[in-house]
Write a protein that binds this DNA or RNA. Structure first.
Lengths: 251, 251
DNA sequence: CGATGATTTGACACCTTTCAAAATTAGTGG
DNA sequence: CCACTAATTTTGAAAGGTGTCAAATCATCG
């Protein structure tokens, strides 16, 4: 936990970025990568449960999640929390803070994570020197909004079972896109409390719904792994249609 | 209604754009405005209730709402509808469609409206030739996401009275930002069905909640006008904190 | 092997939805 | 400007999905 600065100066060579090498993202030119390298101010490791961005703080970083999972959330004064979306490796966020004085949302690590933090003051330079990267940023931001839209539809209009089914499918799909396929399902480091906060449900009711779907043989969650058995039924239940997305850019 | 093409060729001179002249938006250079002028493919008038963007269609425009109000929404196969956010004059949307083959959401006019539709094929040119406008687009998109975030928090974690209070305040604030202040409150062309769809509530319960707040003297809706009487109580009830936003760009 | 946190269960209250129908308001044609 | 119809807003009553409370069972970890 206190190794937060152990690798402070030594920034990974972006051209060797493990995310990039995995080939899930759109390619960049060497010049672009060089710029991104300079754009990067810091890499930071954060423990599971630790804050990456603090809600209501007056400064906020823009960053890419390089390893681990996290989530973006907002809270009400009395503590009620709504998870806006989950962040998986490769996801970029923090731009919205550009608009306000205080961070309207927080980001918290779900697992031990590692983030690449960029120089906000160079954001404008990025747009000027590499329009393509500016375009990519817009793209990344729009992708995030698409997910939030989907979540809003869920929370606003789907029943509890439908919401849970939807979340299982959505997370499963996203996880599959970034990890090697195994017969043991996908990594799933999300607790029931997190699911509840993401779906606008209570913990108890989330648990009961989850148990119900699982006992129907639709899926299984065990040891931080999610296996989908009956994607067909889950899809039908949640009316979830995967949007065919192009390959995401990486910054 | 069938005057949809009456002013087809004659595009407004963007430098004389009524929105721009009103001075609510960040300024642009003459060169930028000239580019925007060329970027604009068409202006279109749509009737209240008509579609501006069709959900699930395979083509989608990017546009700025110049006059009137509209809303962005998604539906489930059985017809349940969730309004994602309301669009007021000056709002820009449609970028997300860039990411998918099918429009993930629809946009419908709430009042007679007029939209400036841009040449999607020139979007990339915009980023290249006018990085500043690219930056603005990112900004506009991020602003929209901020609103969706707020709505997700509401729908997920606020009670019905809290949601309604929140919506009244939020809309009132946005409306005030674009119209002359009058003693008669702000323009409010939103039906209870729309409120229900935006808040994830049923029509009946929306009505009862609205009536309750109104009978408590917190607000009044009459003749498409909303008057807030007790902003203090409404704020306290909804835990709504206005985010101090910078002046929005206009494209 | 305690201790702390996560998951499960059961019971019950209650907020919200659904169903039905009346009362208003808005829109349209004569 | 008055009918007439459609749409919106209101109300009441009852059903039901979710939340809250409490407590037990499991799991994880130093």
């Amino acid at each position: 936990m206190n190794n937060m600065q152990k690798d402070f100066k030594k920034l990974t060579d972006c051209s060797q970025c493990p995310l990039r090498l995995r080939g899930n993202h759109a390619a960049n030119t060497p010049e672009e990568i060089e710029f991104i390298q300079d754009f990067k101010r810091e890499e930071r490791s954060v423990a599971a449960g630790a804050a990456i961005l603090r809600e209501h703080s007056t400064d906020g970083d823009i960053f890419t999640l390089r390893e681990g999972w996290a989530f973006r959330y907002r809270t009400l004064p009395d503590g009620r929390r709504q998870i806006l979306n989950f962040l998986l490796p490769g996801d970029f966020t923090g731009l919205q803070a550009e608009l306000t004085q205080v961070m309207p949302y927080g980001v918290e690590a779900l697992t031990p994570a590692r983030v690449c933090i960029f120089r906000r003051e160079n954001l404008w330079t990025l747009y000027q020197q590499f329009p393509k990267l500016g375009y990519d940023l817009t793209w990344l931001n729009a992708t995030e909004e698409l997910i939030v839209d989907e979540n809003l539809l869920s929370v606003g209009r789907r029943t509890a079972p439908e919401r849970v089914a939807m979340l299982l499918l959505h997370i499963s799909k996203r996880a599959q896109a970034i990890e090697e396929p195994t017969s043991e399902g996908v990594y799933f480091p999300i607790s029931q409390q997190h699911i509840a906060d993401a779906l606008g449900l209570s913990l108890v009711h989330t648990n009961k719904t989850l148990r119900r779907l699982e006992s129907m043989g639709l899926h299984q969650i065990r040891n931080n792994r999610l296996k989908i058995f009956r994607a067909d039924i889950l899809k039908n239940l949640s009316a979830y249609h995967e949007l065919p997305l192009r390959r995401k850019p990486l910054i």
